Simulated assay, not measured.
Amino acid sequence: MVDSVVLYRAPTNVVDVDELGAWLEARIDASVTVRDRFLESHRTDDLAERFAEARVTSPYERETGNTMLGTIRYEERALEQPEREGGVLYDGMQIQRALNSALPATERGLETLHVPILDRALGTWGDHDGRWHKRVIVLGQPALVSVPGLYEAPAKPEAYYKAKQRHALLSGDAPPREVLENQVEGDFLVENDPRSTDALKGYALQAVHYLETGEAFCDQAGCRLFNAHYHEDLIEAQLRDPPFCAAHARLYGDS
């Protein structure tokens, strides 16, 4: 039984973690508190090296890690100055183990769930297709919520990829992301999207739901607990009514 949930702010993006916490507390039988950035609140001496070991070096290689001195120095700077971090994908399971180790021993039990909102891109390896997949959330203790994953993990509308390919054929290089986002019709979330806080509410609830029930995700598209693989599905699940399927509405209300 989860008695308390601790959410951690992500200072370099638009997500309002206090609003996220208030929404969550209204729906669960547990207290919710908000703390400042996890990577400032909980730190181990080897955390920069653990991040370096978790780096994904190729989309199609299972092995991770680059522990050259320069990489570890980069990770040390990123821990101190998160606004300087970006463009790196990490093995979400390795990062989860590293952050679990950083928790005080008295807070590692499942009665207190920790949910760091992170500025890092996280992935999990797909045995079925032999490549890494970006994720919005890695369930467990702590449950990791990736803000970049919200924008990058779900597939965008087909028109987005066609426009990207067309630009590359004409110019020989990839277009700036903001150019594509302005050109392509279709609803999808973009970096620093003002809808980000609302879109992450269902993921924060999913972290609690998983520990309470063992259910990883809802299989009903349109429910906030649905694991969307396309931006259209994410928006339908997180930003449109009704917020829950009938079964989960009974547990968490209908708003």
Rank of each mutant, 00 (worst) to 15 (best):
A10T: 09
P11T: 00
P11A: 01
V15K: 06
D16W: 03
D18Y: 10
G21I: 07
G21K: 09
A22Y: 03
W23I: 04
E25T: 02
E25H: 02
E25W: 00
E25N: 01
A26I: 02
R27D: 01
R27C: 01
I28M: 13
I28R: 11
I28Q: 10
D29P: 01
A30H: 08
A30I: 07
A30D: 08
S31V: 05
V34N: 05
V34A: 08
V34H: 05
R37E: 10
F38L: 09
E40M: 09
S41V: 08
H42K: 11
D45Y: 05
D46C: 04
D46Q: 07
L47M: 15
L47G: 05
A48H: 10
R50C: 07
F51S: 01
A52E: 05
A52H: 05
E53G: 09
E53F: 07
A54T: 06
A54G: 10
A54E: 06
R55I: 12
R55K: 11
V56R: 08
S58W: 13
S58L: 13
E61K: 12
R62Q: 12
R62S: 01
T64R: 13
G65K: 11
N66I: 06
T67W: 07
M68C: 04
L69M: 00
L69H: 03
L69T: 03
T71M: 15
T71W: 09
R73P: 00
E76I: 02
R77V: 14
L79A: 08
L79R: 10
E80P: 01
Q81K: 14
Q81T: 13
P82V: 03
P82H: 07
P82G: 09
R84N: 05
R84W: 12
E85L: 05
G86A: 06
V88D: 06
V88P: 00
V88L: 14
L89N: 01
Y90H: 15
Y90E: 06
Y90T: 07
M93G: 04
M93I: 09
Q94T: 12
I95L: 15
Q96Y: 11
A98V: 08
N100D: 11
N100K: 15
A102H: 06
A102K: 10
P104K: 12
P104T: 09
A105C: 03
A105V: 13
T106W: 03
E107Q: 15
E107P: 06
R108Q: 15
R108H: 09
L110G: 08
E111A: 03
E111F: 00
T112Q: 10
T112N: 07
H114Q: 10
V115A: 02
P116G: 04
P116N: 06
I117K: 04
L118T: 10
L118Y: 06
R120K: 14
R120E: 02
R120S: 02
R120N: 02
R120P: 00
R120T: 01
A121D: 03
L122S: 03
G123C: 09
T124R: 14
W125L: 10
W125T: 08
G126L: 12
G126C: 13
D127K: 12
H128L: 13
D129N: 15
D129T: 11
G130E: 06
G130S: 09
R131L: 07
W132R: 11
